[in-house]
Amino acid sequence: MWAGEPMGRIIAVDIGATNLRVALFEGERPVAVRKTQTPRTSGSDLVKAIVDLVRDVSGGYDFEAIGVASIGPLDLRNGTLLWAPNLGYGNVNIRDSLGSEFQRPVYLTNDALAGAWAEKVLGAGKELEDLAYVTMSTGLGVGAVVDGNLIVGRRGNAHELGHSIVDFESELRCGCGGNGHWEAYVGGRNIPRTAQYLTSRWSGPRTKAFELASRGELSPEALYSMARQGDEFARYAVSFINRVHAAGMMNIIAAYDPEAIFIGGSIYLYNEDLIKGELIEFMKEYVGVFGVPRIERCTFGDDEVLYGAAATAINPPQAIARSAYRPR
């Protein structure tokens, strides 16, 4: 199946750290969606939950293929979820388990890569040959399309620019074990720690946000809400985080030379008013002759990864197609 040709029914699976969603797509739009909490018990329970949702959402209708977009890291060659830190298990062969159950092609990809492919196949990036997708959420994920091709990598993990270095002298440790990473500063799980770190650099009034931050209790939701209400320390912390994002964006520009960068993830989608304008201004300080590409809100909002899973089955990228499950 290729973009521009008539498309039948496909199943899209979005495996998130919190929620598991499965949709039945007809053409380019979902006609039915089911959702449950992602099992935190075992890989076999995860597979069973997906199978149950696929059966439910398909409603007895036949479908042509299954596209799966998952948290990672993954090993696409073997079709496995290697390890999910937020779930506490790994070594789950998602691709072959679903393929053998339903005897349909199964295309597996990372969620950030799926977001980029959603823009290229179904979204506002259809006419672009070079684009990137950034998700600002619990972590920081990146996907890129270069010369019309999704950049995948040998095992499917060529999206880990959240672990690019934005401060080589930093002592803030990332969840992966390294220091100075983009995600270490701005990932949703790390923002309370970043805010606490910033209290040592703050010489202004001890605001409510400052007091929360000093105890490591300033959540992303509270941070942006207080910044919107005018809390001085919160606005300072948001500005600092925007500058870190700008440095990270420069890494994307240098690596992929995109015409546009689409941004999604809950932190951005609910706080675009506090991020986009200042982000672009900070980016101008870093990009030099490269210039600032278009910065756009992702096309499908909270459903970006679900649409990306569908796009992966509708128009499989070459590297994904090579490692797909094929019914015997």
Rank of each mutant, 00 (worst) to 15 (best):
I263R: 02
Y61W: 11
V142P: 02
R104Y: 12
R21Y: 09
H245A: 13
F262I: 02
R40M: 13
S58A: 15
M250C: 11
L87W: 03
E183K: 05
D52P: 00
A69E: 05
T41C: 11
R228T: 14
E101R: 05
K35Q: 13
A32G: 08
F282P: 01
E211N: 08
L76R: 02
Y185L: 06
I11Q: 00
R322Y: 11
R243G: 09
S70R: 03
H159W: 11
A260C: 10
Y197A: 04
S200Y: 14
I10F: 12
A247T: 12
A184C: 04
V166C: 04
A112Q: 06
E171C: 13
L74R: 02
Y197C: 03
I263M: 12
S70N: 06
T312E: 10
M136T: 05
L128H: 08
T194V: 09
Q229R: 15
L161K: 01
R40N: 13
G265N: 12
S219D: 11
M1E: 11
H181Y: 07
L81I: 07
E64A: 14
S58Q: 07
L223M: 09
E28G: 10
V152I: 09
Y185M: 07
I15F: 13
A158S: 11
S100G: 11
C176R: 00
I15G: 03
A310G: 11
Y185P: 01
M1P: 10
Q229A: 15
K120M: 09
R77I: 09
G143I: 03
P293T: 05
D96G: 02
G178E: 13
L306K: 03
E28A: 13
T41W: 13
W182T: 03
A313I: 03
G79R: 02
V57F: 00
D14T: 00
Y325F: 15
P316S: 05
S170W: 09
L122N: 07
Y325S: 02
Y268R: 01
G72H: 10
T38I: 05
I275E: 04
T138S: 12
N190K: 07
S97G: 06
Y270P: 04
M249Q: 07
L223W: 05
I252D: 03
Y268T: 01
